[in-house]
Each structure stands twice: as C-alpha cells, then as structure tokens.
C-alpha cells in the first residue's frame, strides 16, 4: 500500500467530526468519497493534507505514506510533503491562484520552490499543459482572464508537473458547467493513466464519482457508512443509506412524463 490510514479521528473542541477506520490507496487508484454536507468528507481531506491544525482541530490515529508516518510530522516537514507527495485541488481553483501573478510566473515559481532546475522547468511546464489540453499561451494570462474550467485544468497541470503521488480533489467539478465538468474528469483520468497518480475524489454526487473511481467510500455524519469497490457500491450496495443516495440521483429517462 502506498497510503495506509488507520483509525483516523478528527475532532474540534473534543467533538469528533469525522472518523475513518481504514483508508488504503495504491498508486494509480482512484478512491471516491461520497457524502452530503456535514458528512465529514471535507474534514477528512483537510486531515490528509495535514491542515486540520490550522483550523484548531486535532487528528489522532495513523496515516502512513510509503512507510512514513505523517501524523507526527512537524509543520515544517509537512510543508515538504504538501505539493511534493500530496496535493489538493478545490472547488474554486481560481481562489487559490495569486491574482497579481501571471500563470507562467506562478507555475515556474511553484516548480522552483520544489527544487526543480531552471533548465528542467520550461519543458516540464509545456508538457504538463499539453497533458491537460491547455495552450501554452495561457502562461501569459492572469488568473481572472481564464475560465473556471481552465483554472481547474491549470491546477491539475501543476500537480502533473510536480509528479505528486496522491491528489486530493475536493468537489473539483461542483462549481462547473456539465460540459466543463466532463473535461476536468477526462483530464484527471489522463493524469492517473499517465503518471500513476492516486486520486481521492470527494463529491456529493455519486454519479460523478462513478465516472472515475475504482473504490468508493460513503460517509455520513462523520462516519463511514460503507466502503468497497466501485462495482460493489454501485451494483450491490449493502447499506440502506447508500441505496437511498443512489436512488435520489435523478437520471434521464428515469420517469415517464
């Protein structure tokens, strides 16, 4: 296992907001975490990024990435893990891009911060942009000059260029139009196939998760309701709640009018 999480508990002021008994991830595997608001799925994402402490929360349990325990890392050590081993993309990627910097400068600086040589940076950037089907002229733009879908693809290009091992995608398509959502999903699939990036895909929408995930974890009120392979969750869900979530998704041609 590349990532092994055991008995993860996230609490704020002695109140447990999410607990995940087991979460395993192999290289190139996509794990979908599904849940409604308040299910603890985003809290889990924050914990996996080592960010819970910045929200004054406490994490207990164990989180091992390639044989290294992450929970005991100092903030300084975490900074080296984030961006190199684990990265995250969010619902609104533009908010995470410095509005005063051109995307090219942003990209190059990020690579430099992770110790990449000047000669290596240029080709790496061009290649990563090609992988997400963005024209290199986008490097000359400011974040507000690109669309939401382009911003999300740019964020994924950064992940691709850094050869991150685990990508945590928290509702990465929820703010996007359906056609753009489909493009971002294709780009994520591409990233997984090409670089073997493991992806934790968090969404309230099981149908989007089904597009990409090999394994699925369903959360509710901070607890894991059911987890298993995507086939088993979609085809033979054992829990009432999972069945209800699946039944609630409207499908085209679902009813006659």
């Amino acid at each position: 296992m590349m990532l092994e999480v055991r008995d993860l508990r996230i609490s704020y002021r002695d109140q447990v907001v999410a607990s995940v008994p087991t979460l395993d991830l192999e290289p190139g595997q996509v794990l979908g975490i599904a849940g409604e608001s308040g299910s603890g799925k985003s809290q889990t994402a924050l914990a996996l990024m080592g960010l819970t402490r910045y929200a004054n929360g406490v994490v207990s349990g164990s989180m091992v990435l390639d044989g290294r325990e992450l929970l005991t890392l100092s903030p300084r050590q975490w900074r080296l893990v984030r961006g190199r081993d684990i990265a995250m993309i969010l619902q609104s990627p533009r908010a995470a891009l410095n509005p005063t910097m051109k995307l090219g400068a942003l990209f190059s600086r990020t690579l430099r911060l992770h110790g990449m040589d000047k000669e290596e940076r240029g080709p790496r950037m061009v290649q990563a942009l090609a992988e997400v089907v963005l024209d290199a002229e986008i490097l000359d733009r400011y974040p507000h000059e690109i669309s939401g879908g382009q911003a999300q693809r740019f964020a994924i290009a950064l992940v691709a260029a850094l050869r991150v091992k685990v990508l945590i995608a928290d509702e990465p398509t929820s703010a996007l139009d359906v056609t753009v959502q489909a493009e971002v999903i294709d780009v994520l699939r591409n990233l997984r196939n090409r670089h073997g990036t493991a992806i934790i895909f968090i969404s309230h929408d099981l149908s989007v998760i089904g597009e990409l995930a090999d394994a699925v974890m369903v959360m509710r009120d901070g607890a894991v309701v059911e987890q298993g392979s995507a086939e088993s969750i979609f085809n033979q869900p054992t829990q009432e709640y999972t069945r209800m979530l699946l039944a609630a998704i409207p499908v085209i041609g679902g009813r006659s009018r």
Binding site: V133, L134, A182, E183, R189, L206, S207, V208, G210, E211
Partner: peptide, 21 residues
C-alpha cells in the same frame, strides 16, 4: 455522468474553447 461504473471514457470531449468570460 451515467449512474454506475465502467462507462468507457469518451475520446474527444476535451476542447480548449474560448474562455467563458
């Protein structure tokens, strides 16, 4: 997205269209 798994990815959904703005 169709509900369920195993749908083969479409090949040509990606476009680099004009920015919406």
């Amino acid at each position: 997205p169709e509900l369920g798994v195993g749908r083969p990815p479409s090949t040509s959904r990606l476009t680099d269209g004009p920015p919406q703005t």
